[in-house]
């Protein structure tokens, strides 16, 4: 029972990532309405940590890593980690991936995600370049 549900999580998450990669191979984010936008941003104008990750994948697939990094630095850096984790889950289905990382580091990563989210919404110069595309236009919090 544990095996099959773990396996299905691995399958579903791999399929989800593959679907996104396939979609950006054929569709251009922003030029088509077939790619769903970020719900948080659509509702509040706030940049969530994932905003721009579809565009990030698009630029990666089309061979422009520099633009990809500017769209979403966190996704860009987390992508190899995620790929590694998925490969490990496929190769050794029931092993614990990343379970030997010291707990403080995992929480620190969570803190980094939150800090990234807050920073990219500040419209002061060093922070707003974390917003998708590195642009400083529509950030929510106006710094003095």
């Amino acid at each position: 029972m544990r095996n099959s549900s773990d396996r299905s999580i691995t399958i579903v998450s791999t399929l989800g990532l593959a679907a996104m990669v396939t979609a950006v191979c054929f569709l251009r984010p922003g030029a088509t309405s077939w790619l769903p936008p970020c719900p948080l941003h659509a509702l509040t104008g706030f940049y969530c940590p994932g905003c721009g990750s579809t565009r990030m994948l698009y630029y990666l697939v089309h061979g422009e890593p520099g633009m990809a990094f500017r769209e979403n630095a966190l996704s860009f850096l987390a992508l190899p980690v995620v790929l590694y984790g998925l490969v490990r889950q496929w190769m050794r289905p029931n092993s614990g991936v990343f379970t030997r990382i010291r707990p403080g580091w995992v929480l620190a990563f969570g803190g980094l995600v939150i800090a990234f989210t807050v920073a990219r919404n500040i419209s002061a110069q060093p922070f707003c370049s974390l917003a998708p595309g590195g642009e400083c236009r529509t950030a929510l919090v106006q710094a003095r």
Partner: peptide, 16 residues
Amino acid sequence: PPVPNYLTQAIMATIF
């Protein structure tokens, strides 16, 4: 048996 923590999926959930 080893205990998975699903951190990979957690990162994907946060980002995507």
